[in-house]
């Protein structure tokens, strides 16, 4: 009974079109393609065309002329320069470590919050609405607020650390790499844990609560239920949350831009900041495009490997 219910909840709907479709189904499919064609065309124009152009730019030396920009192909020279730069490896290391740490922390805490909300018997709506507030706030604005909190002269964080006797005197949180990393993590988690929680809460709502009762009758404890029932049954939601968060964390820009400006030194300079500096500060378009493409390639490789490793079910599969 238990295993049947569990399977039923994770297996997707039956395939819409069987292998040998009837004539009517073929017509219906063709009509479907026709109707979605304008939307697909728009997506191609606003997504694929800029990506293709970025790849082209990364293979060019872009110079300004009297009549506009000149693009001359230079092969992989921009990639060679980027991969030979210490700044890129430093940014890549920071971004990768930050992604792993922040996504782990946010998914674990997000799951905890989601489970609590799922068990609430009243006030769920209010809590869900409140959860949306940090997520809805513009990151540049919240980043500025956090910069006041972590300010080394009058910041609230320093005040609390001293009052709670965590440190004997104010510490310069943003002036050391670990402090700056933690500050980014806290500010980012404040905003994104609600996002993760909402996704996982959606998954938890699909779980049949009788399973928990049955497991308890069989003598299962809280951790066993979490590991054997809850997590397997919300696996799809977890994968969705992790993939979204990894994509966002790897492209992190606005928060370090406002909170640390990549410092101290270049300790919190992300890949996106590196690309921004090349593109908009140094006006080195080809080089900046190469950094962007390297970043995209890393994220795509991760996404493919992750999705294959966790064998995401396809509808009807």
């Amino acid at each position: 009974m238990t295993s049947t219910s569990a399977r039923a909840s994770i297996v997707g709907p039956p395939a819409l079109f069987p292998p040998r479709a009837s004539r009517r189904a073929r017509i219906s499919r063709r009509r479907g393609y026709l109707l979605t064609a304008p939307a697909l065309l728009v997506v191609a124009l606003v997504t694929l065309a800029p990506i293709a152009f970025s790849v082209y730019l990364s293979l060019c030396a872009v110079t300004a002329g009297a009549d506009g920009f000149d693009y001359s192909l230079v092969g992989l020279r921009n990639y060679a320069a980027a991969l030979g730069s210490q700044a890129l490896w430093s940014a890549l290391t920071f971004t990768a470590v930050y992604t792993v740490v922040s996504v782990t922390v946010q998914v674990v805490l997000g799951l905890g919050v989601a489970i609590i909300i799922d068990r609430m018997t009243r006030g769920t709506g209010v809590v869900l609405a409140l959860l949306l507030v940090p997520w809805a706030m513009i990151t540049v604005v919240s980043g500025q607020l956090w910069s006041y909190i972590f300010n080394g002269v009058y910041g609230l964080a320093d005040y609390l650390l001293v009052v709670l006797h965590v440190v004997p005197a104010p510490v310069t949180i943003l002036s050391n790499p670990v402090g700056a990393f933690v500050a980014l993590l806290v500010a980012d988690s404040w905003k994104t844990i609600p996002f993760v929680s909402l996704i996982l809460f959606g998954g938890l709502r699909t779980v049949d609560k009788e399973l928990y009762a049955a497991a308890r009758l069989d003598g299962a404890g809280g951790w066993t239920i979490l590991g054997r029932i809850t997590i397997p049954l919300i696996r799809q939601s977890l994968i969705t949350a992790v993939v979204f968060r990894v994509l966002q964390a790897f492209g992190i820009f606005d928060l370090p831009f406002v909170l640390t400006n990549g410092g101290p030194g270049n300790a919190t300079q992300s890949m996106a900041m590196l690309a921004y500096n090349a593109l908009f500060q140094d006006l080195n378009i080809g080089y900046g495009a190469a950094i962007s493409c390297i970043t995209a390639a890393v994220v795509i490789v991760f996404a493919v490997v992750f999705l294959r490793a966790f064998k995401v079910e396809e509808p009807g599969g």
Partner: peptide, 21 residues
């Protein structure tokens, strides 16, 4: 290349000022 020259200066000097270099 002034922006790159300046960034090389301020990032490294800032790292030294924060005790990280």
């Amino acid at each position: 290349a002034y922006s790159q020259v300046s960034r090389a200066l301020f990032q490294n000097v800032n790292a030294a000022l924060s005790g990280n270099a």
